[in-house]
Simulated scan of single mutants.
Amino acid sequence: MNRYKKMALKALSYCGKNLKKNYRLYRKFTNAVKVCIGHGCRVTDREIIVGDRKIPVRFFYPKNEPTSGILIFFHGGGWVTGNIESYTHVCCNMANQTRNTVVSVDYRLAPEHPFPKGLEDCYDTTREFFKNLDILDCKAEDITLIGDSAGGNLAAAVSLMARDRGEFLPKRQILIYPSTYNDHSETSPFPSIRENGTGFLLTSEKIRNYMDMYAPRKEDRLSPYLAPLLAQDLFKQPDTLIITAEYDPLRDEGEAYGARLKEYGNNVKMYRMKDAVHGFFSLPWKSQYVIRTYEIINWFLSSYNGQSEELI
């Protein structure tokens, strides 16, 4: 990484200081994105009713002839920021680049709704789709879970919960620089927390602040649905694609999760994005990192042969 990029990232890394105190302001800043259907993508809004809850979802239909594939998407933002509005440009591009219909879930955010409220929204919405496939006009094997950062954490947790409850089981999941562990301090077993924890946009301090708001009860941090790496076993998980970033504090725990999935016999593909930092998936659609990401995702969706491969 060249020194000018490092200098810019270091300056931007100071944004979001005092996150727990100013999270509402930070949320308004990160969510202040004009909704745009972008690139000719057709968009419709619906609600999934579960008990007394109405969970908003947004459907994104590709501009070109769609495949039968469905991507159920959980957005990032540390479980505290982000929504279907701020991720509309990401989801429009996702639909067009993959020719899959994308369904973005507007789950409840912390700290107003701490763990496991947001996860319950993601799980319940996904279960309703699997129980009522006519809503998506697809087969169960056409559905893939996908999420970035905190959304990657939620996708992995939904898959674990689905196996444990026996109500459904996704065929595939795509985890983009996911959070999978519960310790992001200096005592973390993962070197990337210390190597990339300052000066690369997402800092270890911000991660800890997000975790404090999402899981204020210490006992919750021992749940595998919060930290999937803590699961006693990882049998019977979906075919998995994990994409990490070279200069991301979450890099090592994401890759460690892929390694553990492999240990339990799951089909896994991992890719480390060279010279990239956390958050690259939300860059403009012509970014080299975004272009490469969709090359990998489309390979995974269309031609993955079910054999584990090494990190490349």
Rank of each mutant, 00 (worst) to 15 (best):
I297S: 04
L71G: 08
Y26T: 08
K6M: 14
I37V: 15
M213Y: 09
A140H: 05
G16K: 06
I48V: 12
E255K: 03
R172G: 00
G147D: 04
G82I: 00
T244F: 06
A155S: 11
I297T: 06
S287A: 05
D148Q: 13
Q307Y: 01
Y225I: 02
Q97P: 00
T98N: 09
K21T: 15
F59R: 04
K10Q: 09
Y123V: 06
I70G: 03
D275C: 12
Y4K: 15
R58H: 04
V80E: 12
D134P: 08
S192P: 04
G265T: 14
C138A: 10
K171G: 09
H278T: 02
I146C: 13
M94D: 02
G254D: 10
G78S: 11
E295M: 13
R217P: 01
Y289F: 15
E295P: 07
G51V: 00
T101M: 01
A227H: 00
I297Q: 05
C15S: 11
I135E: 11
L250K: 07
P66N: 04
P114L: 09
Y23D: 09
G78D: 11
A95S: 11
G166W: 01
R127Y: 07
N209Y: 11
I84A: 02
S179K: 14
S86P: 09
Y257C: 08
L301P: 06
G118M: 01
K54A: 14
R108C: 00
K131R: 13
N305Q: 10
E47T: 10
S68M: 11
I55V: 02
N196H: 09
S303N: 14
R99C: 00
A157N: 04
Y304W: 13
S302Q: 14
R260V: 04
N132P: 09
K21N: 11
Y271W: 15
N298G: 05
F281L: 13
L154Q: 01
M273R: 07
E205D: 14
N96K: 01
T126R: 09
I312N: 15
R53D: 10
N2Y: 06
R24E: 15
N196M: 05
D183T: 09
Y214T: 06
I243F: 03
L250A: 06
A256N: 07
A11L: 12
N100K: 11
G258E: 00
M273I: 11
N22I: 07
F73G: 02
N298C: 09
Y61V: 02
G258Q: 03
R172Y: 13
T125Q: 08
L230Q: 03
I291H: 13
F59K: 07
